[in-house]
Design a protein around this nucleic acid. Structure first.
Length: 775
DNA sequence: GGGGGAAGGACCA
DNA sequence: TTCCTGGTCCTTCCCCC
C-alpha cells in the first residue's frame, strides 16, 4: 500500500509515476482508472524505464534502512530518545508565536490568466503547457486527473477534450507584478517564491492597521468587472466547487459588504487584512488567490492549501491549536517532504505528523542530523518566523531539452549557445562564477553533471565555453566509441561574487576532472612558477596543453611570466594570460580572440611575432572560404559547420575542399601541426560510422587534408601519421586513440625540451613514453 | 579526522 | 511521437592536508 498522494494497485505500478493527487481539486478521483491509463501510455518508454530504475534505487535505500532498523538496540533507542527530548526542550524554549505569517498562492495561476483572457475556455478542461509537459491545469481538467508536471500527450489520453494552451511567461510576469504591488502594501519585505506565490509577514501591518480609520480599510468594488461578476461569472469559473465560492467571504463577512454593494469595508484583524488583500488582487487582476495565516512559514504554507481555491484559513497563534492542527496532517502536505521521503517514512509506518513525533528517536538513528532535526521541527509545528529575501543568489543556470542529438557539431554548437545565454544572464546581474557545471541528460533520461572550479570567477561566453567544451569533450570521449546521445544540455555557473572585476585567487586549485583516465600532464613538475595550475583537459586528441593552463597572480604584480616563452606578459587578467600561454604552447595564433580582445593583443604580442605569417594567412583564407560557402548556402541544412569560435576552441578547421564530404572537419593539433579528419558530422551519422584516411607522414603537415575516402573494411592496414607505423586494426576508434597517444607523446617530447615532465598521471603505457606506438 | 570539491539526487514552483 | 526549467539544499564519496 502506497502512502499519501500515490497509489499502488498491486500491478507493479511505479509509485513515482502514478497519479499524484496531492493538489487542490483532485480529491475523490478514480485513481486506479487514471493510473491504468497513465501506465498504459508510459510503460515501455525510456522515461518509464528510467523511472523504474530510480524506483529500485529508492527501494534499495529503504531496504538498507530497514536492515539498519533491525539492528538498533534498546540502549541506542533510549539514548536517542534523550537526545530528542533535549532538542525538543531547546526548540520549545524559543518557539515564537508572535508573528503573523501569510502564504498567498494564486489559484491555478497560468490557467486562470489564460481563461481570463479567453473566456471561451472557462467551461472547458484546459491546461497550460505543451504535448511534452504541462505547467498547470484548471479545475475542470483536474477532475480527469490532469495536473501540472504531466506530459500533455498523457493528459490528452485522460481527457481527450483537453485544451492545451501554450505558456506565455511575459503575460504571467506582468500579472504577477500587479499582484506583488498589492503584497508590498502589507509587507514591503515580502518574499516571492515564484510568479504566483509569496510569503508575507503582516505583523507590522496589523499593528498599524489597528488604529487605521475606516476610510483606509475601505475599497471600492468596480462594477462590471468587480467581485459580483467574478464570483458568478469570470474568474471563479475555475472554482465552482470552491469551499469558499459558495459563501463568498467578501460579500457575507465584510462589514458593509453585500451583493451588488459598491463599497467594501474590511476589519482590522489578520483575517480581514488578508481578505482585503485577496479582494484587491481580484479587483485588479480578475484572478483569485488563496491564503494561509499562521505563526510560521511552514504552517502558513499548509494553511493556504486548506481552503483552496479562492479561500483562506487561519491557524490561531497558540501552541495547543498548532499541535492539534499538526496531529492529523499527512507528512506529504509539508513542504520539503516529497515522494521519496514520504515513501521512506511510510516504510516505517509514518504517514502523519503525529507519527513523526512518536517515532523521533528511531528517526534520529536512521536519518541524518539535518533530516531528523527537520522532522522534529515539523512534528512540533515549528517553522521559520523570519521572512528574509535572499540577498545573494547562489547559482544561475540555463538548460534546454531537445530531440535526440548525436552530431558533435550540434552538441558543441548548443554548448556554445548555452554559454552565451548564461553569460548574458550573468552580465545582467553583474555576477561572476567560479564553478562551471555541465549537465547532460541522455536519451535514456540518465543525468550527469560535470563540474570544474576555476581559480578565478568568470562571466563571459568565451570563458564559460572554454571550460564547458572541455567537459563536454571529456564526456564524449568517455562513451566513445558510442556517440553521446543527448536530449538535454545545461550549463550552470555558480557565482561566488558580484564584483564586476574578476576575483583573482592566490591559491591555485589543481584538480583534474577527467575521470576517464585520459592523458594529461601534471604541470607542477615543469620548471614553471608554483602558481601555475592545470585546468580541465579536453581530450587526448587535443594536445592537452592547449587551453589547459591557468595561472594565479601574485598580489601586487601587474604582469605575469609566460612559462613557455619566458617573457613577461603585461596583464593580470588570468583569462588573457592563459590564452597567451595556450598560444605559446600551440604555436598557433588564436586569431579571432586576438582581434577581438585588445588586452590579449597586448599580452600576447611577444608570442605573436613568432608565429608564421604565412600560416596565419592560410588559416584566415580557409575560414573566409568556409564562411563564404556557408553564406552561399553550400552547406546543407543540418550540416552547418561549427562556428568559428567553436572551431578555434576545439582546434578544428573546416575542410572547405571536402566537396561531397561536407561536414568533414580537420583536426589540427596545434603543437605538431598535424591534420587529422574528425567524424560524425552529418546529423544522423555517428562516430561508429567514421570516414578516415590517415595522412602521409613526414614533412610539414598540410592545413587541409585531401578529400576523405571511405576506409575499406577489407583493408585493415591504417598507418599512424605520427609514428608512421601501420596498425593492425580496422577499428577507427582504436586507431584514433592510438594517434591521440602518439600526438601526446610528441607534445611531451617538445615540453621535455623546456622542462622535466611528471608523467605519473599520464595514462600511457611505458611504450608510449618511449615514443613507440601501440593500440 | 576535517574541510572542501565533485557528483548525484530530492524537492519545489 | 511526445515526460520541463531553474533553483536550492543535502548526502555521499573522495582527495588532500
Amino acid at each position: 500500500m502506497e502512502t499519501g498522494g500515490t497509489s499502488s494497485s498491486g500491478e507493479g505500478f511505479l509509485s513515482r509515476m502514478a497519479l499524484n493527487d496531492n493538489k487542490a481539486g483532485m480529491e475523490g478521483l478514480d485513481r486506479d482508472k487514471i493510473n491504468k491509463i497513465i501506465m498504459k501510455f508510459s510503460k515501455g518508454s525510456r522515461f518509464y524505464e528510467n523511472e523504474m530504475k530510480k524506483e529500485q534505487q529508492v527501494n534499495q535505500r529503504i531496504e538498507r534502512m530497514m536492515l539498519q532498523k533491525a539492528h538498533i538496540t534498546e540502549q541506542q533507542l533510549s539514548k536517542a530518545q534523550t537526545q530528542v527530548e533535549n532538542m525538543t526542550f531547546d526548540l520549545e524554549r524559543v518557539r515564537d508565536l508572535s508573528r503573523v505569517i501569510v502564504h498567498v498562492d494564486m489559484d491555478a495561476f497560468y490557467a486562470a490568466v489564460e481563461t481570463r483572457d479567453c473566456p471561451d475556455l472557462k467551461d472547458k478542461p484546459m491546461a497550460v503547457g505543451s504535448m511534452s509537459m504541462l505547467t498547470t491545469s484548471n479545475y475542470h481538467a483536474r477532475k480527469f486527473g490532469v495536473r501540472a508536471a504531466m506530459p500533455g500527450f498523457i493528459a490528452k489520453k485522460l481527457c481527450p477534450n483537453l485544451v492545451i494552451v501554450p505558456t506565455n511567461f511575459d503575460k504571467y510576469r506582468a500579472v504577477s507584478a500587479e499582484v506583488q504591488e498589492i503584497f508590498a502594501d502589507y509587507d514591503p519585505h515580502f518574499l516571492p517564491m515564484s510568479l504566483d506565490e509569496a510569503y508575507l509577514d503582516i505583523s507590522e501591518h496589523l499593528e498599524q492597521r489597528r488604529v487605521w480609520p475606516e476610510a483606509l480599510r475601505t475599497h471600492l468594488e468596480e462594477q462590471g468587472d468587480g467581485l459580483q461578476e467574478t464570483v458568478e461569472g469570470l474568474s471563479p469559473v475555475l472554482f465552482e466547487d470552491s469551499p469558499s465560492s459558495s459563501s463568498c467571504p467578501f460579500l457575507q463577512d465584510a462589514p458593509g459588504g453585500g451583493a451588488g454593494g459598491d463599497v467594501m469595508v474590511f476589519g482590522t484583524c489578520a483575517e480581514e487584512a488578508v481578505r482585503e488583500m485577496r479582494f484587491r488582487i481580484e479587483q485588479k487582476t480578475s484572478l483569485t488567490a488563496s491564503a494561509g495565516i499562521a505563526p510560521n512559514m511552514m504552517l502558513a504554507k499548509v494553511c493556504s492549501d486548506k481552503n483552496k481555491p479562492n479561500g483562506q484559513y487561519r491557524l490561531p497563534s497558540n501552541r495547543q491549536a498548532v499541535m492539534v492542527f499538526i496531529q492529523d496532517l499527512p507528512v506529504r502536505k509539508v513542504s520539503g517532504i516529497g515522494n521519496v521521503t514520504e515513501k521512506m517514512l511510510g516504510a516505517l509506518g509514518i504517514t502523519s505528523c503525529i507519527h513523526l513525533g512518536q517515532e523521533m528517536a528511531l528517526l534520529a538513528l536512521l536519518f541524518s542530523e539535518t533530516a531528523w532535526h527537520h522532522f522534529l521541527e515539523i512534528s512540533l509545528g515549528l517553522g521559520s518566523t523570519h521572512i528574509e529575501r535572499d540577498g545573494e543568489r547562489k547559482s544561475m543556470s540555463t538548460e534546454r531539452t531537445f530531440g535526440e542529438m548525436v552530431a558533435l557539431e550540434e552538441q558543441f554548437s548548443l554548448c556554445r549557445q548555452l554559454c552565451q545565454d548564461l553569460a548574458q544572464d550573468l552580465q545582467k546581474e553583474a555576477l561572476r562564477g567560479k564553478t562551471v557545471t555541465l549537465k547532460l541528460k541522455n536519451v535514456n533520461f540518465e543525468v550527469k553533471t560535470r563540474a570544474w572550479t576555476l581559480p578565478c570567477a568568470v562571466a563571459t561566453s568565451d570563458e564559460l565555453f572554454a571550460v564547458a567544451k572541455d567537459l563536454l569533450k571529456t564526456e564524449i570521449d568517455n562513451v566513445s566509441p558510442q556517440p553521446l546521445r543527448l536530449r538535454l544540455m545545461g550549463n550552470l555557473n555558480l557565482p561566488s561574487l558580484t564584483a564586476t572585476k574578476p576575483k583573482q585567487t592566490q591559491t591555485p586549485i589543481q584538480k583534474n576532472p577527467n575521470t576517464s583516465a585520459e592523458t594529461h600532464f601534471t604541470m607542477s613538475a615543469l620548471t614553471a612558477p608554483d602558481n601555475m595550475t592545470h585546468a580541465p583537459t579536453a581530450s587526448s586528441t587535443e594536445a592537452h596543453v592547449s587551453t589547459s593552463l591557468y595561472w594565479s597572480t601574485e598580489p601586487g604584480t601587474d604582469s605575469l611570466t609566460c612559462p613557455v616563452c619566458f617573457r613577461e606578459v603585461n596583464t593580470t587578467d588570468l583569462t588573457v594570460f592563459n590564452r597567451h600561454v595556450d598560444q605559446c604552447l600551440s604555436g598557433v595564433p588564436m586569431e579571432h580572440n586576438i582581434h577581438t580582445d585588445t588586452e590579449l593583443e597586448r599580452g600576447s604580442s611577444v608570442c605573436e611575432e613568432e608565429v608564421e605569417k604565412e600560416r596565419e594567412g592560410e588559416i584566415e583564407k580557409e575560414i573566409a572560404e568556409g564562411e563564404r560557402r556557408r553564406e552561399e548556402g553550400l552547406m546543407e541544412k543540418g550540416r552547418d559547420p561549427l562556428s568559428r569560435c567553436m572551431l578555434d576552441s576545439l582546434g578544428l578547421r573546416l575542410d572547405s575542399s571536402a566537396g561531397d564530404n561536407k561536414g568533414l572537419l580537420l583536426y589540427e593539433t596545434s603543437t605538431t601541426n598535424i591534420s587529422l579528419n574528425a567524424v560524425g558530422l552529418n546529423p544522423g551519422s555517428s562516430q561508429s560510422d567514421p570516414r578516415i584516411r590517415p595522412l602521409s607522414p613526414g614533412g610539414p603537415r598540410p592545413m587541409t587534408t585531401p578529400k576523405v575516402e571511405s576506409h575499406d573494411p577489407r583493408e585493415p592496414a591504417l598507418t599512424c601519421p605520427v609514428c608512421q607505423v601501420t596498425q593492425d586494426t580496422d577499428n577507427l576508434t582504436l586507431f584514433n586513440r592510438h594517434v591521440d597517444l602518439c600526438l601526446n607523446q610528441e607534445v611531451l617530447h617538445e615540453l621535455e625540451g623546456l622542462a622535466s615532465v611528471d608523467c605519473t598521471t599520464h595514462n600511457a603505457t611505458p611504450a608510449a613514453h618511449k615514443g613507440q606506438c601501440f593500440i
